[in-house]
């Protein structure tokens, strides 16, 4: 019970902090960076649902991010569609594309899936880059309108944009939380754990993987669309593989397959990058090895380290309580309980 209360306090505290943050800093640049990192977080949550909870490492997510961004950009700039309608259509379109690609991609497994999605991502990038007539090619797409007013609320100031993105981030987290902590989420995790076992448990793996994949691409598309509306200028580079790697780094360092990993990882790396600006393009000199190091020693990232520590502490507590009970009742311990509760890496 205390744990539940604890968690609720933490979550409330964090939301409160996020709401108050722009009023505290009052620094437009800081708010800008924070808004951007929220946008990345949405994409990272999408990737997490697929790679972290369903076990399929997609390397095409920058592509879907770009599809979302370009859909919004083209709909608003070229077709003159209202921003909100365009946002919905962008997500929808990304989702449909995700569905079509997922139908084929998810027939492959493991390495093949990673390579396949890597290539899909590259095709999307190349099409955006080369299809000058539609996307503006290397010149990019400029003049994307800011989100249009909803009644009296306008989205021109940086603070209002911040809250808009925060709203979508919270919505994303809410959705992902509900999914992960449901039978559907358990089904995804069963697939991640062992697809063969999931099949023998009567789970239609293809259907579930597809649901996870499509959702994941929709979140990537949403992030892209918000990015387009926020930055107001997009170029083909947002679909390049480096963006996928960025998302992956945020996820891995925060903790893949954890609820809070995307937040922790994105915030940490985005702000660390700000402080490491003198490194500029060389920041991967630090993050590259960090990624390899974490995956070897702490595959569940920072959040994983924290959870491990908590679990150990609980186990120790449990053990000492047990020993006390034993002394009282002099009951024989059953063979398993005294077994080492420390986490053993899956082998």
């Amino acid at each position: 019970m205390s744990v539940l209360l604890n968690r609720r306090t933490v979550v409330t505290g964090l939301i409160l902090f996020a709401v108050l943050f722009p009023f505290v800093t009052r620094n437009d640049y800081v708010i800008h960076i924070m808004t951007l990192s929220f946008i990345w977080m949405i994409g990272v949550y999408g990737l997490n649902l697929l790679a972290g909870y369903t076990g399929y490492l997609s390397l095409a997510h920058a592509g879907f991010f770009a599809v979302g961004a370009y859909s919004l950009g083209l709909l608003t700039v070229e077709a003159g569609v209202n921003f909100w309608l365009a946002l919905i259509l962008a997500c929808l379109f990304t989702g449909i594309l995700g569905f079509l690609i997922g139908m084929i991609a998810l027939r492959t497994r493991e390495h093949f899936f990673a390579i396949y999605t890597l290539c899909v991502g590259y095709i999307i990038y190349l099409v955006i880059y080369k299809w000058d007539g539609l996307t503006g090619g290397v010149r990019g797409l400029i003049g994307i309108p800011a989100p249009s007013n909803i009644g009296p609320i306008s989205f021109t100031s940086s603070i209002s944009q911040y809250f808009l993105v925060l709203f979508f981030l919270l919505l994303t987290i809410f959705f992902i939380y509900r999914i992960v902590h449901s039978l559907t989420g358990r089904t995804f995790m069963a697939i991640r754990n062992s697809e063969d076992l999931a099949l023998t448990l009567g789970i239609s793996t293809m259907k579930n993987k597809l649901v996870s994949f499509v959702l994941s691409t929709i979140f990537a598309g949403l992030a892209g669309a918000l990015y387009a509306g926020f930055v107001r200028f997009i170029g083909p580079d947002i679909g390049y593989i480096t963006i996928t790697f960025d998302l992956l780094i945020y996820l891995l360092i925060g903790g893949i397959g954890t609820m809070s990993g995307p937040i922790v990882g994105t915030l940490l790396i985005v702000w660390l990058s700000q402080y490491l600006q003198f490194l500029q393009d060389y920041r991967m000199l630090v993050f590259g090895p960090l990624l390899a190091f974490l995956i070897i020693f702490y595959p569940w990232g920072i959040v994983g380290i924290f959870q491990q520590w908590k679990q150990k502490r609980q186990a120790r507590k449990a053990r000492s309580i047990h020993q006390e009970e034993n002394r009282k009742d002099e009951v024989e311990l059953d063979a398993g309980v005294s077994a080492d509760q420390e986490q053993v890496r899956e082998g």
Partner: peptide, 28 residues
């Protein structure tokens, strides 16, 4: 093929999933 980092109960709960029909909608 059990998931080592998860509890026994969490591993077994999904075993009955095939007798249920909740969808994504129900989850959210």
């Amino acid at each position: 093929h059990l998931f080592e980092q998860s509890t026994v109960l969490d591993n077994v709960i999904v075993g009955h999933r095939l007798r249920t029909s909740s969808t994504l909608w129900d989850a959210i």
